[in-house]
């Protein structure tokens, strides 16, 4: 069984928002709701500054706090490690929003369902690749099987020493080059 994850190389991301728009498209989100958020991080002080754009979305954590707190088991993890929301079971209580350390949960209007990035999951499998990966103008995103040492994503994580955004906190499956 595959264990899906993603690599985001902030050293290649110019912050063009194409991924956000592609994601809105495939997920049918209106212009003012988005599963991908951007944080501009400044390090250092003038003139020794480094600035990066950090796109953040659901990290598909192995220890997903949003899943643990969900009172109706609406949030679940597939065998291939993708964290999903069963919209029929979601009661919109927002516990998951409070629990997510990445602020990746979005309450949709007007359904009230609290959704998030699903790796473009439809009919039993993730997108090949997910829309955000396919549209990236600079190849800053790689998607693949974290359990396959021959996969591009595994090789790139090893080569770049990419790390989850918050270390081992939730055993996130999105790795960042920063």
């Amino acid at each position: 069984m595959a264990r899906y994850g993603m690599l985001i190389d902030t050293k290649k991301c110019v912050g063009c928002y194409a991924c956000r728009i592609a994601c809105q498209m495939i997920n049918g989100l209106p212009s003012d709701e988005a599963f991908i958020k951007f944080y501009e991080e400044e390090q250092g002080s003038y003139p020794n500054v480094y600035a990066e754009n950090v796109p953040v979305q659901c990290m598909h954590c192995e220890d997903a706090p949003c899943q643990t707190v969900c009172p109706t088991t609406a949030t679940y993890t597939t065998d291939s490690g993708v964290v999903l929301v069963d919209e029929k079971k979601c009661i919109g209580c927002k516990y998951c929003m409070a629990a997510c350390p990445y602020n990746a949960r979005v309450q949709l209007h007007p359904s009230g369902v609290v959704e998030k990035c699903r790796f473009c999951w439809y009919e039993g499998e993730p997108g090949n690749p997910p829309a955000c990966v396919g549209t990236c103008i600079s190849g800053a995103r790689i998607f693949g099987d974290l359990d396959d040492p021959e996969s591009e994503i595994c090789k790139e994580i090893a080569r770049t020493n990419a790390q989850p955004l918050a270390g081992d906190l939730t055993r996130a499956k999105i790795y960042y080059v920063r």
Binding site: Q24, M25, I26, N27, G28, L29, P30, S31, C120, Y122, E123, G127, A131
Partner: peptide, 21 residues
């Protein structure tokens, strides 16, 4: 209304700016 409601279309029906008004 939503331009191309994606909720009943599935992935293959995903469309540019479907939920836009």
């Amino acid at each position: 209304k939503m331009w191309a409601d994606p909720s009943w279309r599935g992935r293959d029906g995903a469309c540019a700016f479907g939920a836009s008004k």
